[in-house]
Design a protein around this nucleic acid. Structure first.
Lengths: 152, 152
DNA sequence: GTTTTCGGTCGAGATCGTCAAGCATTTCAG
DNA sequence: CTGAAATGCTTGACGATCTCGACCGAAAAC
């Protein structure tokens, strides 16, 4: 479905999405119209979901991040999910198997804000919160080529 | 630190990082060199961490995602952290307060792969894994302007 | 064996980004 | 109060880049 050239293009773009077609073309050994066409199709197929910009939350005043596990009270699942979606400080939310129904990432400017936001769902769900102390791995895509070797 | 124009630029770029300077200039009411200069400084200051491309893991064959909570055995913290960083299938990892030391996102192509990867840290840490069933909120930046209203 | 399709190249025209010069406003020193 | 320097913007020209159409060759389908 993806050939080596596609993977190579993606690899370059993940590092810098503004790489020019000309530069991309040079690096994969194609002409720029070909590269353009390949990108168009990668987008069309949904392989490339979006070209975007990664913003430092700190620069926006969000000095704190937390991982919040959320277990809605019986019958409140949909209300809780909707609430989470509406609170813009949730920067990510996954619905998972197990006791905790949702696992979400929360951006806040202060501990006070954290409390304020959690209060908004406190009467509809049990939550357990873990403050993020460090980020050993920041968002990155899975391996584009073969999966990670059994290295080490 | 950031003015309205900066925020507006970021908002546009988050949606589509390839928006041309000309287009950006038109939307914020400036000339393209001014926009160019603003972007340069946003990057310089680290507000914009990177221009990147969002790839659909599914398109790469990663049909499964999991949230893994990892509690290293006594004395194994650093070894475990290094191991996590080296395993490319970990697409995100946060070091948090509380009993679970790390919370990580894992991309895998099959349940078998999941088992294989967790085995690699099984002798150095306790893990608890939750399979992701749905993603109510996919990665998004915190609010650029004022924080989320006390709505609802 | 011919035809169609697919993915590629080339070149021209249009678009876009960058640079230098210049101008207005603000800030600060004297 | 006054003048100088710094800041942030605009304009216009030049160079680089992208896009579009025409064309080509290999592989698959008929």
């Amino acid at each position: 479905m993806l050939d080596d050239l596609d993977r190579k293009l993606l690899e370059i773009l993940v590092r810098d999405a503004r790489t020019s077609l000309k530069e991309l073309a040079a690096q994969v050994g194609l002409s720029s119209p070909s590269v353009s066409e390949r990108l168009r199709r990668l987008e069309e197929r949904g392989v490339i979901r979006a070209f975007t910009v990664e913003i430092d939350p700190l620069a926006l005043g969000y000095t704190l991040q937390a991982i919040v596990r959320i277990r809605p009270l019986p019958g409140k699942l949909h209300i809780v999910q909707k609430l989470i979606e509406e609170i813009a400080e949730f920067g990510e939310c996954d619905k998972v198997t197990g006791d905790d129904c949702f696992v979400a990432r929360l951006f806040v400017r202060s501990i006070g804000d954290l409390d304020g936001i959690l209060d908004r769902i406190a009467d509809k769900a049990e939550t357990s919160t873990a403050i993020i102390k460090a980020q050993p791995i920041r968002r990155r895509p899975p391996p584009l080529g073969a999966a990670s070797s059994p290295s080490s």
